[in-house]
């Protein structure tokens, strides 16, 4: 028996919105410690990793580890049926064919019960090494969303350059070039609206903007986004969600011609 009750149901809705466009179907792995999901997009360029710790739920019960193969589109449709202030409960048996979503209104007057069929999804887990990143950039999530949106008007890919002066996002297209530079904030007490850069090595990488734009769908989940970049390695875009877990996106960089030669 697996049962997880999330008092702040809107979080589940937001998580769904954050991944449903990128991932078509994925296994939700439910263990004693929490619910995790790892999946690649259909073209295997990016990876989504999601963790919802058990202590974020009240109550959380998982008698044995199960894997719920879920079609994201269908689940997103069901999640849309939940109101923002609903309490969402996810429930299934030990050898499930179905998963049940229960939406309870705060005053207990309305209870919606949706049962969804599960799928058998053959997925392989990728081990993500704890690498030392060359630069770790934290910034307001809305700021990153804005940058991605603005630069996608200019070009298809963004070059992220990080050096001791700050971080620069630049895009180039038929119409011209756009550059957005962010400097580290001096204000220390205002944590949230702050741009902070932990720099080990200057680094410059190019990414497909469209994917980054899709990652910013997680913006409602967190106030801060962290970009971890390393030369010739995928960027990790992390949204930490208070008290429950995180959603991380990884995107492979574009290999530039000069580097190949």
């Amino acid at each position: 028996m697996f049962e997880a009750r999330l008092v702040q149901g809107s979080l589940m809705k937001k998580f769904m919105e954050a991944i449903k466009d990128l991932v078509k179907e994925a296994n939700w792995d439910c263990t004693g410690t929490g619910i995790s999901l790892q999946a690649m997009d259909t073209s295997h360029v990016s990876l989504v990793s999601l963790l919802l710790r058990s202590d974020g739920f009240d109550p959380y019960r998982c008698d044995r580890n199960i894997s719920l193969g879920i079609n994201m589109e269908s689940m997103a449709k069901i999640m849309k049926c939940a109101s923002n202030d609903d309490v969402i409960t996810i429930r299934s048996e030990d050898h499930p064919d179905n998963v049940t979503f229960v939406f309870e209104s705060p005053n207990q007057e309305k209870v919606c019960d949706y049962e969804m069929k599960l799928m058998d999804i053959d997925s392989e887990h990728l081990g993500i090494p704890d690498t030392e990143y060359d630069a770790i950039i934290s910034m307001p999530a809305s700021e990153f969303q804005r940058i991605c949106r603005d630069l996608s008007n200019i070009g298809d890919s963004v070059k992220i350059t990080c050096n001791k002066d700050g971080v620069q996002f630049s895009a180039q297209g038929d119409t011209g070039i756009g550059k957005i530079a962010l400097k580290q904030n001096a204000v220390i007490d205002k944590e949230d609206g702050q741009v902070s850069i932990e720099l080990n090595d200057p680094v410059s990488l190019t990414f497909a903007l469209r994917y980054l734009t899709f990652f910013t769908k997680a913006t409602p989940l967190a106030s801060t986004v962290t970009l971890s970049v390393s030369a010739k390695n995928p960027v990790a875009v992390e949204y930490r969600v208070d008290d429950i877990g995180y959603i991380r996106y990884y995107l492979a960089p574009k290999i530039e011609e000069e580097e190949e030669n």
Partner: peptide
């Protein structure tokens, strides 16, 4: 939209991470 992205110079994400079943 994602299909349209030019992925010619992008390696598969799985090539960066090790596989463990």
């Amino acid at each position: 939209k994602l299909k349209k992205v030019d992925k010619t110079n992008i390696k598969s994400i799985s090539s960066y991470f090790f596989r463990d079943k």
